[in-house]
Design a protein around this nucleic acid. Sequence first.
DNA 1: CAGGAAGAGTGGTCTAGACCTCATGATGTG
DNA 2: CACATCATGAGGTCTAGACCACTCTTCCTG
Lengths: 272, 272
Amino acid sequence: MVRDGARSGEHKYLAVRAFLADLVTSELAVGDAIPSERSLTEKFGVSRMTVRQAIDALVTEGVLERAQGRGTFVAPPRADFEMRLTTFGEEARRRGLTPGAQVLEAATVPAPPHVAEALDREAGDPVHHVVRLRTADGAPMSIEDSWIPADLVPDLLDDGVPESLYAALRARDLHPTWGEETITAADGTPDELRRLEMRGTQAVMRTVHRTFGGDAALLYSRTCYRGDRYSVFVPLREARPTLVPRHRPADDGTGKPEHPVQPGRIPEGSPR
Amino acid sequence: MVRDGARSGEHKYLAVRAFLADLVTSELAVGDAIPSERSLTEKFGVSRMTVRQAIDALVTEGVLERAQGRGTFVAPPRADFEMRLTTFGEEARRRGLTPGAQVLEAATVPAPPHVAEALDREAGDPVHHVVRLRTADGAPMSIEDSWIPADLVPDLLDDGVPESLYAALRARDLHPTWGEETITAADGTPDELRRLEMRGTQAVMRTVHRTFGGDAALLYSRTCYRGDRYSVFVPLREARPTLVPRHRPADDGTGKPEHPVQPGRIPEGSPR
DNA sequence: CAGGAAGAGTGGTCTAGACCTCATGATGTG
DNA sequence: CACATCATGAGGTCTAGACCACTCTTCCTG
């Protein structure tokens, strides 16, 4: 897991990987070939399996592509436009906009039932609740309702609302590792339309979002975006038949808990 | 690449992989441990590196999880709820609904400019154009505008509109491998609202979609979903700093084309 | 009984080769 | 000049070990 991220020479394959990563970012362009596996073997004085381990990592990350008989090449950057776990601020800056926020509410409160369920806590457990109007280049973009379990970051709101909730989490070693988002379209409420300064149209995009890190749910949020100013881009993978494990056998007593936070289940289904 | 999918004994690591995949689907439950690497070594009479190659594949697919010092375990099924390249019909059935379709238009026409651009063709090239009202359990769900290059499937519309466009593509060995989708929320037009039988609300979710297979764009579609009946679930990966290749150096003449269809570029960005 | 040490078993990294298939360009040959 | 052949070099698979790092259990000691 790489404890401090410091020394890259810990493992030989990491050294090779680092060399190749640097090559890709500083020397090569898309479509260029990297040095052959055997030449890397000599350059680093390692065995070919070790070189392949380094290359394999970059291939599964989508940075490189192998072509038998021809070589290994820099892959076109899909990375650029994949949906990722980012904050409103990071995303806005990436698109060349200046992000802003106006705090509408900020308090530590007992978790309402639906929040508790989403965060895998008990109803009534203390959670930080922040409501913000997000802007890009000064124009209102979305209204964001966020909840964070208070025990993870007790002092989150002590000095006012942090610029970035993610940054605050990361500062406490709570690194977001994955998340999920459910998107719907709906008519905005009069209050929302007013806050978002929408006039011609009234359609908004609503998202329900959860962020996970380590074993726990870190953040639950509901956001309402201006329909006319916001779009979401989603890459789709192949729908290959997926390996699905056998169902848990009637949960006999021997249960090994493992995986405390079972993903999914909340969204999309649950009509009613 | 596995040509026919027939012989699984071609490569030893594929045999091990197949054994483990079968184990996962038929014997093990989430959280169970698979046999240790060394015991698989004996069972199959292969070296440990070969066993690891098989396990690695399943780990990167998300089927298994390694834990140093403890073992390798069946991972919880994310697969279940990832956004994938599916058709309306498959998706509806997966949610327990009966899909239906009413063809509003079907013709082979010269590609309008925006369609040509999306499909990476010349404007005016012949494309099949199909407009359908999609229903689930009889209730209108969406209006779907689809374009497919005519040269890929010349006889697509000869016997009426196929039940499933994807199935028709697959039948011609044009397997969709990946796609992209841009989602926005907007007010439906009066015509759309009427066709979708929407009364209380008028927000719709619009998606612009492209499907790719092999080297070519196979399908371009614009769909308008009822906002009150449709939602999209998106898993989010970690936003790790991505390796970005050096920019193409002013495209000197030596250009190796490669990668004919450059992904993205159309959606989301392009403000201007 | 509590705490620590040792051992066993797991995955993680690594070697120094081997032979295979595939793509490509040079070399002949008709 | 066009086409087939072959050599070269790339990645793909595989071996039979080695030692390391980590986890868990068991057993011994205080």
